[in-house]
Design a protein around this nucleic acid. Structure first.
Lengths: 343, 343
DNA sequence: TTATAATCTGGTAGCGATACCAAGAACGGG
DNA sequence: CCCGTTCTTGGTATCGCTACCAGATTATAA
């Protein structure tokens, strides 16, 4: 062992030249045998494979990337890991990427646009070959960085009017509007709305906008007092919100929660207080946490195709990386209202 | 723009030499000004910083890593993203890494040891500087790979008898044993156990072992019929399991679920069927899904310090990468029984 | 059999940074 | 004012791989 290479604890890694020497071929042949076997004769390929197996050779993709100016790492930025709604999307992305030989780097922006920008910078310094951003409003710097480097980018979480590059999502505005209209059709007239934090979050704001639009569509009065901003997205906040709404507006007959955990918290609180759902108050949710289907009563909700969004995002990215023509896309994967017993 | 560099959509990236030329200094000075400013005079540093800002220079960490044989990317492998219990750990790891200038690559093993091995190979090819594995049984190849490359590794999810390198976790065995004993102390005598899938999952098996051990400790009969293996970890499986247990064992007075979602599914099913909890049957859970605290009744559970585990894991890794002596560690972060109304 | 194309293989020159060494500038003590 | 330190700076040589071109080998056609 040569002293210095130990720094990284990386031992003296076997290199391609080592393999080449032991296989009795040139390094180029080893390179080809590994990255595009069809361009090498069977005899050579077998010699190389044998040596690779024998020495447990692990190609150095860092060197490969530097040389080829290509990388196989995709960067994903989500606002937070805590929210389970990102989980199914991440899973889908991860699956598609892996099936195509790509890897995933993840960072979270903590709902801060500046942190998102910092994460993108860091990813670009790592020379990721593509980006997925769960966010559609960005700092000017970020837009500039993306433009300059020309990395393929998928935006998701909402449908931006002007995508940076490609967008795959559903419309928060339309979804909230549809659910509010649905409640109206069911006969509810005084519909409260509990929103997730609005700061730096276009998705939350779009949902609220959808709620207002539906009321207007139906000719229902728009009462700002019926809108509550929950400080967080937890059970407790949902519980607190439903109580406050009911107490300040005794005539309230339905409440629409902009997050599934909020809705569940509210439902549980109603159970605790003996408020019948949907008799005393109807509850509707945004996003189909599995739980909402199993609760008593099961909760009416919007099913967002989180998994499909992840899958399509990754597929688009992979296609582009594999040579598809750049094309500014804006794919709407829609949503679905799931009517259950809580409304 | 020179035609060829376009391949990656990467434009013609500004390089360190470009910055050097425009700042009127040598590339080495730029390198130093960026990576260790204290070794460079103020005048030089300012010139470099100005040029960096002006050209929007993004250092190429791929090249940096190749040259320095150091990387700042940590690989994390979890069985799945779907389970929220990984989420808080991932968040903690991500936070600690970012605070120290490291990045996170993530893969999922889908509960397969071979896939875990494949993911580790891929990560090592990317020359990650450290690994976190949420699993403590591995293929022989994987152990060999880790030994040979000498990467720092954290194992978590369970406390292995023989860690590969460092382990940070709690003991599934002790936790399950403690909860079962707790139920015994509360007076329950016929305690069912619903386990998560056991195949390739030492954590599940350890939990079951803990359950059996506690029964033995208490002199209670060990009836294999009281143990059910749920096919998955969802609400439906928990619901199905509690029904089957109660129907096949009318005398059953408590059920201990090896997963929080299972327990919640069972609780909801009991509500649906009008089985009083804990009167007819007590329900205890493993892992403190937030929901269990808000359900009616609130569910007794084991609180596992998922976040602390993530944090400590990342901290240990970072320390080691920053120069701490290798040391075979096995850190037990314990657990806590949270007695609530369901038992 | 020879010409000509189609396959394979190897040599060379980077990719964009950092390590290491050596030389020049600044500094202080005697 | 000289000389040994200390602080800065720059040159050179990789890091391990792939792109590109050229030469060698084999196959195919004439």
């Amino acid at each position: 062992m040569s002293g210095k290479a130990r720094r990284n604890g990386n031992g003296d890694a076997v290199t391609m030249s080592d393999i080449a020497r032991h296989a009795g071929v040139s390094p180029m042949t080893v390179s080809r045998a590994l990255s595009d076997p069809s361009t090498v004769s069977d005899k050579m390929r077998r010699k190389v494979e044998a040596a690779v197996r024998h020495y447990g050779y692990l190609p150095n993709r860092i060197a490969g990337s530097l040389s080829s100016k290509r990388s196989n790492v995709v960067g994903l930025i989500v606002p937070s890991f805590r929210n389970s709604l990102y989980a199914s999307m991440i899973q889908a992305i991860s699956d598609v990427l892996r099936a195509n030989g790509f890897h995933l780097m993840i960072a979270n922006s903590g709902h801060s646009l500046d942190d998102e920008e910092a994460a993108v910078s860091a990813f670009l310094a790592q020379r990721v070959c593509g980006l997925v951003l769960h966010n559609t409003t960005h700092t000017k710097q970020l837009r500039e960085l993306v433009r300059r480097t020309g990395v393929p980018v998928i935006e998701t979480g909402n449908l931006p009017a002007e995508p940076l590059d490609m967008a795959v999502s559903y419309s928060n505005f339309e979804a909230a509007r549809a659910m509010t209209a649905h409640l109206g059709r069911l006969g509810y007239r005084k519909i409260g709305f509990v929103t997730l934090p609005l700061a730096d979050n276009d998705r939350s704001r779009e949902r609220r906008r959808g709620y207002f639009a539906a009321l207007k569509d139906m000719g229902l009065p728009v009462d700002p007092g019926l809108v509550l901003e929950a400080a967080g997205g937890g059970f407790a906040e949902g519980a607190g919100a439903v109580v406050r709404l009911v107490q300040t507006h005794p005539k309230l007959d339905a409440a629409f929660f902009a997050g599934d955990v909020l809705a569940m918290g509210a439902l549980l609180e109603c159970q605790r207080r003996g408020w019948r759902v949907p008799k005393r108050i109807a509850i509707a949710s945004f996003d189909d946490l599995d739980l909402l289907h199993h609760s008593v009563p099961a909760v009416t909700t919007l099913r967002i195709p989180r998994e499909a969004i992840g899958r399509r995002s990754a597929e688009l990215l992979v296609n582009r990386l594999l040579g598809a023509q750049p094309e500014r896309l804006r794919i709407d994967l829609g949503f679905e209202i799931v009517q259950r017993d809580s409304t």
